[in-house]
């Protein structure tokens, strides 16, 4: 199965929002204990939930555990889901809260366990443009760039990292991020700005223009 996380989020969002009624049917069935319906919901969101947790932790094993626990907790808490927000936003919030709590607990023992980069990366226009320049990043392979990027992300605070991950990696809108992070859009924008500034400082060697 070839799968990439580079799938545009906008397309998935459109798919999800085109059938909110169908999703509510699945949610209601799952609420009554129908595990087949919940299985369908997991399959819809597993990649995005896993990816968010993975980009926050930079550790595959932790991401696996946390993503699974988030889905289990969501199932147990389904009765409290009022439908005020979309199931997707509600699920995201559970996963994000779980991840932030986990990161706060293991503050001083961060260990990276990075996933491999898929072969499509070499053909990604953004990365092609980035690596073809005559800069230090040209000499550094993709794997070194990946390691430096993840190390820099881990140096950000959880809320700043989350803003970057949700917006610049996952492609969520400011409004969606505000819903997930329980804050207003202005706060999201300001976190995003400061997070990018910090990343620029941390990755200065790799972001230098020719």
């Amino acid at each position: 199965m070839t799968m990439t996380m580079a799938e545009p989020i906008e397309r998935n969002e459109a798919e999800v929002t085109s059938a909110p009624a169908e999703e509510m049917v699945l949610v209601n069935r799952a609420r009554r204990g129908d595990l087949k319906a919940y299985d369908e919901l997991i399959r819809r969101y597993q990649e995005r939930i896993y990816a968010t947790v993975y980009h926050m932790t930079a550790n595959h094993e932790d991401a696996n555990d946390l993503a699974q626990e988030a889905f289990i907790k969501a199932f147990q808490a389904l009765k409290s889901f009022k439908g005020g927000s979309s199931f997707y936003t509600w699920l995201y919030r559970i996963a994000v809260n779980k991840t932030i709590n986990f990161l706060k607990q293991r503050k001083n023992r961060q260990h990276m366990s990075l996933n491999d980069i898929d072969f499509n990366a070499e053909h990604d226009p953004d990365l092609v443009a980035l690596i073809s320049d005559k800069t230090p990043r040209r000499e550094a392979g993709l794997n070194e760039l990946q390691e430096k990027l993840n190390a820099a992300l881990l140096k950000l605070s959880e809320s700043h990292r989350l803003a970057v991950v949700l917006h610049d990696v996952q492609g969520l809108s400011h409004e969606e991020i505000a819903n997930v992070m329980h804050c207003n859009i202005g706060t999201v924008r300001s976190r995003l700005f400061y997070a990018r500034q910090q990343l620029q400082a941390l990755l200065a060697d790799y972001l230098k223009a020719t």
Partner: peptide, 23 residues
């Protein structure tokens, strides 16, 4: 440039077949 570099994150994928058994 930072946005271009962050695109790399989207290409980090878990081991093949990982999502088949996830749910």
């Amino acid at each position: 440039t930072l946005r271009q570099l962050l695109a790399l994150k989207r290409h980090e994928i878990p081991p093949p077949g990982y999502f088949e058994d996830f749910s």
